[in-house]
Design a protein around this nucleic acid. Structure first.
Lengths: 350, 350
DNA sequence: CGTTCGTGCTGAATCGGATTAGCTGAGACT
DNA sequence: AGTCTCAGCTAATCCGATTCAGCACGAACG
């Protein structure tokens, strides 16, 4: 059987003081007048007995449980939700908090129930996370409670939210290629529907940076963000038309497909085509040559969300977290190009 | 501000009964005599007021919080810990429980603190998980509490544990190749140190099944379980010696490396070499051709662990969960082999 | 010498339930 | 009529903290 827990009363008795006094000492409250001697006796007794406050009892009184609810639409996704949980968890722990996790699978009923279940257990606040960045209306059950949106934004932008800086990432990707000397033949790979935040913003960032350098995208290879469709699309792309000196793949899976298509077309990365990508999933480091990718800072997103949730002064705005560049071997200078000639195979087969 | 919670007293008052009566009705206890009429009034009032019991208050009295602690060494790993958490979470939810998660990073001090933190919040039990299967001594803080080991076994085997059936998976892998007609030239790819459970068991399973069919491994390509080392090792392997008709890769990353080496050697999967693997990470489905792999049933592992933890009668033994085969396109019959001749390139270049 | 003030501490209430130990009134039984 | 039973409920206590409202005592003050 579990050893019967030591209570505050046990500590108080052993220290020869009242429970009240013991409570004040343990809470470290200085507004009440406790002699140094009594304080020491209490502390000593607590240590000797290995006292641990019962957080349920405390919570009942104070309404604070040092507990956070992380509710998400999906907790298992290709992208490492694990890192996000880790970031949240370790930051919570740093602040002596613990983390409830739960997923709703996008079901509003489940979501409602989950939030209630957490509320029933007295959570101090919520991290309402989406695994893929999207707009969201915070559920009404959150009204009156502290919460931070993670990876999603409320329509009115009045709610604290944490987002990856996708636009900045787009700029980074383009900037990297520009620096390497690419200019005319940079293609985007992957579809960019307006309603997908990551897609829209990444593209916007790329176009921004290119425009600023007096350049522009040479075109887009439309495909779903998966290896197979990307492979098909890029293969077709390599089959005809003007060749690219660089590909900006909208995520690593797309890049993976592009790698395969490139290999099949006899093109070498990065000598014939440079490839940059987004997400920096583990796939990026497994590819040969290593794929340069702009990471989604999952850990940092989780960390910041918890930090904002637990901050003294509640945040009220959208925080964008920089997406760090992870340079590997997939980017190089473009091959010298014949004036008005074609790059790629032509040069390659010189 | 949060709407002031409705308490049991509110319900009782509205129903015109005492708190005691309301409590009995809500708990659905029939050992106390409550008139159908009073019961109905209470239920009605509870519904009208949208009453939700305060689980902290209840827990304070009953020592039950309907809460489980999932403590693991790592929650973010290549293998999708997410699925494991999902399995645990959804099963917990099915039983009206919520899940605390935490990782120790293998640090005993952190582990101790984490367990204490959970205990302080009155968790009803623990899932002590390891992300990679290994032996473990359940920490002393768990003494006197309910817990289930996940992905690890205690030395004395007296503690309930849930494990993937790695040996069975090994048999499955070998069986699949045998069924396809492979016999003489099956190689294992990846090192198999004795102390790594998954490695040892997978290999043992393979050897068992092969022996039973009167065959045996043609050899092992030693390498770390990562794409790059696997690529190097398999490339070298393809460079010399007798060629394989089939490769059993000890995980998908290894298979990925093998795919690359095969492609480079001009070998086609599965026509020249069949490849089977373990883990069934998403990588397996991204590879071309799709990689046949034997999955780690993360979700099921989590599910079963929670199920055992919450079972009426405590479990006391080791439960092995079948690792399901996910067939894709990487296995085919071996090319017809010249009697006493060499398979592989010879046949290929016929 | 009586009052005030500050120091150091304690009793009791409180949080919201669960649970134990009755209490009441009506019908059955003697 | 008096006593038992039993259905149907309630008062009081407990769980383990926090916190409000004082209480006692000695020193300082007028």
């Amino acid at each position: 059987m579990p050893t019967p827990r030591v209570t505050l009363l046990d500590v108080a008795r052993r220290a020869g003081v009242s429970r009240t006094t013991a409570s004040f000492v343990m809470a470290g409250r200085t507004d009440m007048r406790i002699s140094a001697e009594a304080e020491h006796r209490v502390l000593h007794a607590a240590r000797e007995l290995n006292y641990r406050p019962n957080l349920m009892a405390r919570g009942l009184r104070t309404k604070l449980t040092r507990t956070i609810g992380l509710v998400s639409d999906t907790i298992a996704s290709e992208a490492f939700a694990g890192e996000l949980i880790r970031g949240s968890f370790s930051t919570a722990l740093l602040h002596q908090h613990l983390l409830f996790v739960g997923e709703t699978e996008g079901d509003d009923t489940v979501e409602m129930q989950l939030l209630q279940d957490m509320l029933d257990r007295g959570v101090d606040g919520f991290i309402y996370a989406s695994m893929y960045t999207r707009p969201a209306r915070p559920p009404s059950a959150l009204r009156g409670h502290r919460f931070v949106l993670l990876n999603c934004v409320a329509e009115d932008h009045r709610v604290p939210a944490v987002l990856p800086d996708e636009r900045g990432a787009g700029r980074t990707a383009a900037g990297l290629l520009l620096d390497a000397g690419h200019r005319e033949r940079i293609f985007l790979v992957g579809e960019t529907p307006e309603e997908v935040y990551a897609a829209r913003e990444r593209r916007a960032g790329v176009e921004e940076a290119l425009a600023q350098a007096g350049s522009a995208l040479a075109g887009t290879v439309e495909c779903l963000w998966w290896p197979e469709p990307a492979y098909q699309a890029v293969r077709e792309f390599f089959g005809g038309g003007p060749h690219a000196t660089a590909l900006i793949c909208l995520n690593d899976r797309v890049a993976f497909g592009a790698y395969q298509a490139a290999a099949e077309a006899g093109l070498t990365v990065p000598d014939d085509v440079s490839v940059v990508s987004f997400d920096d999933s583990s796939l990026a480091s497994w590819l040969r040559p290593g794929l340069t990718s702009i990471a989604i800072p999952h850990f940092e997103l989780g960390r910041l969300a918890v930090e904002l949730l637990l901050a003294e002064v509640p945040a009220h705005d959208v925080h964008r977290v920089t997406m760090p560049l992870r340079e590997r071997e997939s980017v190089a200078a473009p091959r010298p190009e014949k004036v008005n000639g074609r790059a790629g195979m032509n040069v390659h087969s010189r």
